[in-house]
């Protein structure tokens, strides 16, 4: 509860409900694992990226999402997966460029995980939660790609291998 208080106001009103059952429980666990990785990576890059509202906002959004997802799993009588001690970015983070690449990578991984939730639940609240998370990750990935000058900056189909 204390951790979620660190989230920015917008994440406090973001959908974060729903009840996973069956296959959806594992899909939500996978999404939580992706959120753990994102929180860790946003922590890692702080040494390399100029600290601005974007990094802070992304870090806060992932913390809030992680906390909400843990609650959601506990409410469904599932034990939330713990974070790994460390995560391996796709390339070593040594400067601003590689730091941004690492953030793009975790956002895209989280898009895939949250789409996986959408594909495994009929629960309308959980779908709204997953869509909100997927959209947030896609927008942040786009923002970082724009910052890095990558083209195309946008993701046509976030959560799929294509986009």
């Amino acid at each position: 509860m204390n951790r979620s208080a660190m989230g920015q106001p917008s994440s406090a009103i973001a959908p974060s409900g729903g009840k996973p059952t069956g296959d959806a429980v594992q899909a939500v666990q996978d999404a939580l694992a992706a959120e753990h990785a994102a929180v860790w990576t946003y922590g890692l890059v702080t040494a390399f990226v100029e600290q601005g509202p974007r990094t802070a906002e992304g870090a806060a959004a992932h913390r809030a999402r992680r906390d909400a997802t843990e609650r959601l799993l506990r409410d469904a009588s599932a034990e939330p997966v713990p974070p790994a001690p460390a995560y391996l970015p796709p390339a070593p983070v040594t400067d601003a460029t590689s730091a941004i690449a690492a953030m793009v990578a975790v956002e895209i991984d989280a898009c895939v995980a949250w789409r996986g939730v959408l594909e495994r639940t009929e629960d309308a609240d959980l779908r709204r939660t997953a869509l909100d998370a997927l959209t947030g990750c896609a927008v942040r990935a786009t923002r970082w790609r724009k910052t890095a000058g990558l083209l195309p900056a946008g993701l046509a189909m976030p959560g799929t291998a294509v986009g």
Partner: peptide
């Protein structure tokens, strides 16, 4: 979900 998030990405 991917289409909706893709549209949000394009707006961004």
């Amino acid at each position: 979900g991917s289409v909706v998030a893709g549209c949000a990405s394009l707006v961004e």
